[in-house]
Amino acid sequence: MEDYEKCTLCGLCKVNCPTFQVLKNEGDSPRGKAILMKKECDDPIFFKCNLCGACKTSCPMGIDLGLKQHRAKLVEKDIQTDANKKMIENVRKYGNPFGDPDDDSDPDELYCC
């Protein structure tokens, strides 16, 4: 049994989730993500997450939702955000997520997770 399957959907992990605290949308909360995993709903919403692990720390059962591994699976299925794609492209090409180090102009966008 994967850890996320044991999640009781109590919602207590929302308290320290930086993404939820800013966006205040259940869909962006760790519990929201647990629901999507239980219901096998693949969606780029998993990229609205810092992979900080605060949800595991605040879960009374210490559940690790395995968000990093889940995201890797989504990337394999090409379910991801444009920002994530660009970041991977930058890392592969320039060795950093932000782009060409020799480009002195101010970037319009910063690509990172």
């Binding site: 919602g11 949308n25 259940e26 869909g27 999507l36 709903c41 919403i45």
Partner: peptide
Amino acid sequence: STHKAELLSYATDASQIFGTALAVVF
């Protein structure tokens, strides 16, 4: 929001009973 994944997150509470959300408003 009427985004499918977000609506699924709003389909339940800590009871784990699932329903269907048409939309969520804030």
